[in-house]
């Protein structure tokens, strides 16, 4: 492992050996539906005896873990550590998933950046030999998020065009040490919190964009790479507004991003699915990672990509107190399977 400024480069890259994504109805109607391992028409899971939306989110996570471990060919007892987080207050979806699974567990909170955060930490721990089989996972559920952070689901309100739609989705990745079969993690970059004084809770993409620019510039600066070295640079959940802002600002910084795609604009058909500026929530980037990015790296359709998930780190309380919205972005560099 070599550390260059904020970036940790792995000379012996750990790998993402298996992955799985689970999603709800809107996700099943989106462009990435075919890539999901599990989809449901009713994300309340009444037949699974889920009594509320919080339990439903936890159930969705359990589905993702179950399928991921099955694909990896191991039982849950063989997992050394799980790093998981979600959007619920106190990260309860993950806590209750882990109650059911009995795997050593460290809870994370990075809002919509959680998937990248868990991969950054997980890859570092795996490369350092702390864990041999490590689960990195996250989820979000539209209904649990709405009722906790916005309004009751049956409350009549019109969404503004800059608002984003919290994905009902979960993604789980199993990381293993170097030399094994899987998609190699070449480097990870932990982001620094950026706050450009955006206060609009309905424009999270704009609030998170400066964090994305900050992490990208630090990454390119530390590694001496340029955007053209990558097949695609994925950001998590900037949505249409944040994506346009990112491209504008990166061009101004002298590093235009013609190969940029945003997970919030990939999970749904933004024009027809009534998601306003796109998807959001930790489950959004996790689902795009597991349904699109990792499979494409496995098949050799991509040789090298950046996966950078962004998170908005305010709470309902700080928002009501008039605080602006701080953002963060963690970046993971992934290579095509067998290319390293």
């Amino acid at each position: 492992m070599i550390r260059r400024k904020d970036t940790v480069l792995f000379d012996k890259p750990p790998v993402i050996a298996a992955w799985a994504a689970a999603g709800g109805k809107k996700e099943s109607e989106g462009p990435l539906a075919a890539g999901f391992d599990f989809l449901t028409e009713d994300a309340a899971f009444p037949e699974e005896a889920c009594a509320n939306w919080e339990q439903a989110e936890s159930f969705l996570q359990q589905k993702a873990v179950e399928i991921c471990l099955r694909k990896a060919g191991i039982s849950r007892k063989e997992v050394d550590l799980a790093l998981a987080g979600d959007l619920q207050a106190q990260c309860t979806a993950s806590n209750y998933t882990m109650r059911a699974l009995e795997i050593p567990f460290a809870g994370l909170y990075g809002a919509c950046s959680t998937m990248a955060e868990s991969l950054c930490l997980g890859a570092s721990l795996t490369a350092g030999g702390v864990a041999h089989q490590l689960l990195a996972m996250t989820s979000s559920h539209f209904c649990a998020a709405e009722r906790q952070f916005r309004t009751p689901l049956d409350y009549g309100a019109k969404r503004t065009p800059t608002a984003q739609w919290t994905a009902t989705a979960a993604g789980a990745c199993l990381l293993r040490g170097a030399g094994q079969k899987g998609v190699p993690v070449l480097s990870v970059t932990f982001g620094r919190v950026q706050d450009y004084e955006v206060h609009d809770i309905n424009n999270m993409g704009a609030a998170m964009m400066p964090a994305a620019v900050s992490t990208l510039l630090r990454y390119f600066g530390a590694t001496g790479t340029a955007p053209s070295d990558f097949d695609v640079i994925f950001t998590g959940d900037l949505g249409e507004v944040g994506s346009a802002l990112l491209q504008e600002q990166m061009a101004r910084e002298g590093l235009p991003l013609p190969n940029h795609r945003d997970c919030g604009c990939l999970l749904y058909d933004v024009a027809s699915q009534n998601v306003q500026a796109g998807g959001s929530g930790p489950g959004c980037s996790a689902a795009v990672l597991c349904t699109h990015i990792l499979p494409a790296l496995q098949k050799g359709q991509y040789r090298r990509v950046l996966f950078m998930a962004t998170g908005a780190l305010m709470s309902q309380t700080t928002f009501l107190q008039g605080e602006s919205i701080p953002g963060i972005a963690h970046c993971v560099e992934l290579a095509g399977e067998g290319t390293v």
Partner: peptide, 8 residues
């Protein structure tokens, strides 16, 4: 009588 429902 009511039940919280998804907004799909």
């Amino acid at each position: 009588v009511g039940k919280s429902r998804d907004q799909n």
